[in-house]
Design a protein around this nucleic acid. Structure first.
Length: 848
RNA sequence: GCGGGCGUGAUGGAAUGGUAGACAUACCAGACUUAAAAUCUGUUGGGGCGUAGCCCCGUGUGGGUUCGAGUCCCACCGCCCGCACCA
């Protein structure tokens, strides 16, 4: 009997697909189109199991859609700009471009053996001038439409290396290379006006029926629409121009509990005071230490500085409040100034306690309770509470009612206005780095900031750059900056900032529809292929990438680069989990952990017999040495085994743990299927069998279940059904015709997951053409329904017995049979049941 | 700190509010074999009793809704993801 030899089979069928050109996508009006896309990879140089899982899922969908008669587009490209290439150049020498292109070549070579249904003729790399030149054209279009502008923004500044740091390069508030404490510094930068589209990006979430609810919720919270009151405190003894301090609050119902006003260290008033007062300057400098992340700001110790300035409470001008500069107030949200109500905000409470400010309640949990002095009272906004300092006298109200009342009251009395605000900030795209898309503008002494002419695109990155000193090599390049002003022709300087790599990934899905077009998109191609029908990627992109891409689709419509129909770029989204692995650890002489690769460990021991501590599953990472190399798996077991395994054990949205025994089991299963195919081939064609009908019924149920599973991303459940059907087939004594039908159907149902093995079985059984192109099997409805059903009988919700009844039996008859069951009679012991619930086809519950 | 998610046997997990543990791993037992590997078959949530059978407990913890809760609601605990210059 021949053995299952994946290496030989897989190479053969990959060649067959290539020769046939089955995955090359062209427009075809006769078939419904289907665009499936996985988030394109960063070319790190090696594929990992996460890639295998991500691309296998997309491949299952793509192959299933081909089989169900769709014209499928399934492209692949490289998110090729970014910091790692520059880091490599700094660490080991070489050039980011060489490093990146070598990595792309290597990863592509590693990806090919997976047998993915990718149209490689559409491959793109964002670092190629053919791509980023079009991105520059797109930027110029955005600029013309007012979708891009310049303003000051804060960056992480390393005072020793004299360079801007990414958040990732800040470790515990210090620069990763210099170790110097990071400061925040302002630079003039380019911004996309995403905030103009806040309402649209928020409300359109409702139309995304095939997106995970959690992603939509995260995006909605990120956009952060709020209704609140904007008003001003009038100041006492403030510097000129600061007669008033504008404040925005979502809790105006607590205004009578205000005990201080806080302003951001970046607030204009703070900056003015800083100029003439060393103490203020020192405090603001202290606040500006540390990174720019919201996390760093929100978790830092709360610090305040009393400016000495006082403001009058708008309702009681005799009531004066101190103005503090406080490090936890963000200039980017609201007006950069707040009023503090320690009674109803824990952060304000902590601040008030620290600086000995009064704590005033405006509402209480009940009329006769006095406020707690140990923590802020912060009930749900929907909860009714007793307002002892409300706007309409003492009364019970929900927070929502009180907020509305407060806004109405303030508007009537000319104190402030109700306004709607969004937390979403404009998207800063400038990066002070080399390995990115150059921003195509020129700075001219006479004309100011001038867009580059489209005929001069692409503005290519110069190759001759050095990475021996920190900072942006474009800044110190001897000639690259020098150019003629596109407006007046005089000597001018190029912008040396490059674009955030999120820009590259915000429109690549559109570029795939016409990857070689000499404009960013080809409207005809885009109109045919867009939107992406199924997008697949990691949950870590739930907010930024997906929000930016949604914004870009709108901006590209405005600039005429996408058709009206493509408002939302991704019709359906699926977020898949990670591939994890156990960590094997021992301790060195000082008790520090030492990690070991999976292949060094057998039965919990190293080769020298040392016991290994096993730490449960964690994300695969080089430093923890718990990485399994897909190439190793493919060479041991074949791609089909790797593909089968990453889909089999866990639901796709959850993490899956890679285990050697699991991989082994997958391989065994595929061998088993192969062996069944072999056995069927050798069967006596004429000999009668038994149980043909049972086998075919099981087959049709499996068709139904697997189809449902694939349609709903229940790959693990679909695979469980395939295991079960394989066992049924293996034991079957049915005749040749039934068994041949069963093994061919099994091969088809497995083909999205294990395409090579399936092709081989198909060919062995004399199937016509490629299984990849064969139409998906259809379940016969008649074969799915059984004549009798098993109904469990519960007494008071506990299962006591079960009965077999005809599927179409009436409720009344079922009830009669159930009550006559000896277990029911025994348990009821003569009592009359209070109630009997019969759910047809499901369950009977007798309430005693 | 803020936002989101997850938690079920020894393990990964299954289960439109309706028989908890499908399927797989691991373990144990058996068949085949001189033996091993491979392959095949079977058992396995915990506890109890008068053991062909029956009973009790059981889905992170505590409460609630329901005839019925792993599933819905509230609180808590633990872990994971994101927080705008990582990709």
């Amino acid at each position: 009997m021949p053995r299952y030899t994946p290496a030989e089979i897989e190479a053969r069928w990959q060649q067959a697909w290539e020769k046939d050109g089955v995955f090359q996508a062209t427009r075809n009006a006769d078939k419904p189109k289907y665009y499936v896309l996985e988030m394109f990879p960063y070319p790190s140089g090696r594929i990992h199991m996460g890639h295998v899982r991500n691309y296998t899922m997309g491949d299952v969908i793509a192959r299933y859609k081909i089989a169900t008669g769709h014209n499928v587009l399934h492209p692949m490209g490289w998110d090729a700009f970014g910091m790692p290439a520059e880091n490599a150049a700094m660490a080991i020498g070489g050039h980011p471009a060489d490093w990146t292109y070598d990595n792309i070549a290597e990863m592509k070579k590693q990806m090919k053996p997976l047998g993915l249904s990718i149209d490689w003729s559409r491959e793109i790399a964002t670092c190629h001038p053919g791509y980023y030149g079009q991105q520059q054209a797109l930027f110029l279009d955005f600029l013309k439409e007012g979708l891009v502008y310049r303003k000051n923004a804060v960056v992480n500044w390393d005072p020793v290396d004299m360079t801007v740091l990414a958040n990732e390069q800040v470790e515990n508030g210090c620069g990763w290379r210099s170790g110097a404490p990071v400061e925040r510094r302002e630079l003039t930068q380019w911004f996309f006006k995403i905030s103009d589209h806040s309402e649209e990006l928020l409300s359109a979430l409702d139309s995304l029926d095939n997106w995970p609810a959690k992603v939509k919720l995260m995006q909605a919270n990120w956009i952060g629409k709020s209704r609140g009151l904007q008003f001003a405190f009038s100041t006492i003894e403030a510097p000129e121009g600061f007669d008033r301090i504008e404040v925005y609050t979502t809790r105006p119902d607590t205004l009578l509990g205000a005990s201080f006003v806080g302003i951001s260290p970046d607030h204009p008033l703070a900056k003015t005071l800083e100029r003439d007062d060393e103490a203020v300057a020192a405090f603001c400098a202290e606040c500006r230490k540390g990174g720019t992340t919201e996390e760093a700001i929100e978790t830092a110790e709360k610090l305040g500085y009393d400016t000495g300035i006082r403001v009058r409470h708008p309702f009681d001008t005799a009531h004066e409040l101190p103005v503090y500069i406080a490090n936890f107030i963000l200039m980017d949200y609201g007006t950069g100034a707040i009023f503090g109500c320690p009674g109803h905000d824990q952060r304000d409470f902590d601040f008030a306690t620290k600086y000995d400010l009064p704590i005033i309640s405006t509402f209480l949990p009940s009329e006769d309770v006095s406020p707690k002095l140990s923590e802020a009272y912060v009930p749900q906004k929907s909860e009714k509470v007793f307002y002892n300092r409300g706007f309409a006298g003492d009364q019970w109200q929900t927070g929502e009612q009180a907020v509305d009342a407060a806004i109405a009251f303030c508007e009537e009395n000319g104190i402030g206005q109700g306004v709607t605000k969004y937390r979403l900030r404009d998207w800063g795209l400038s990066r002070q780095r080399y390995w990115g898309c150059p921003i195509p503008v020129v700075h001219c002494d006479d004309c100011g900031v001038v867009p580059e002419k489209k005929e001069n695109l692409p503005i290519e990155l110069p190759y001759d750059v050095s990475f021996d000193t920190p900072g942006n090599p474009l800044d110190r390049h001897p000639t690259w900056r020098n150019c003629a002003c596109p407006a007046c022709g005089k000597d001018a300087l190029r912008e040396t900032d490059t674009m955030d790599t999120f820009v590259d990934s915000s429109w690549y899905y559109a570029r795939f529809t016409a990857p070689r077009a000499d404009t960013p998109t080809d409207l005809e191609e885009a109109a045919y292929w867009m939107n992406v029908d199924q997008y697949i990627g990691g949950i870590e992109h739930a907010i930024l990438h997906l929000l930016y891409a949604r914004f870009f689709a709108r901006a590209m419509q405005i600039t005429g680069l996408l058709p009206e129909s493509a408002a939302e770029p991704f019709d359906a989204l699926f977020t898949q989990g990670m591939v994890t692995h156990e960590i094997y650890q021992t301790r060195d002489g000082n008790g520090r952990p030492v990690y070991h690769l999976p292949e060094e460990v057998t039965e919990g021991k190293l080769s020298d017999g040392t016991e290994v501590e096993i730490i449960p599953s964690a994300k695969m990472s080089k430093s923890k040495k718990n990485v399994v190399d897909p190439l190793q798996i493919i060479s041991n077991y074949g791609a089909d085994t790797a593909r089968w395994f990453v889909l089999s054990d866990s639901p796709p949205e959850r993490d899956v743990e890679w285990t050697a025994s699991g991989a082994e089991a997958s391989y065994k299963h595929l061998s088993r299927v192969w062996n069944i195919c072999d056995r069927v081939s050798e069967m006596d064609r004429e000999a009668p069998g038994t149980g043909d009908d049972d086998l075919l019924r099981a087959m049709h149920k499996t068709i139904h279940d697997v189809t449902m599973g694939v349609e709903s991303f229940g790959f693990n459940a679909a695979i469980a059904k395939l295991y079960a059907f394989t066992a049924t087939l293996q034991k079957s004594k049915a005749g040749y015709a039934a068994q041949r039908e069963a093994i061919m159907t099994l091969a088809q149902l497995m083909s999205p997951m294990t395409p090579h093995l399936s092709e081989d079985i198909w060919a062995h059984q004399g199937g016509e053409g490629l299984i990849t192109k064969a139409p998906w099997p259809k379940a016969d409805e008649k074969m799915l329904v059984d004549d009798t059903v098993t109904l469990p009988i519960q007494i008071n919700g506990k299962r006591r017995a079960e009965i077999q009844v005809p599927a179409d039996m009436t409720k009344e008859e079922v009830e009669k049979i159930a009550l006559a069951h000896e277990a029911v009679i025994r348990t009821l012991d003569g009592a009359t049941p209070k109630k009997v619930i019969v759910v047809p086809g499901r369950i009977v519950n007798v309430v005693a």
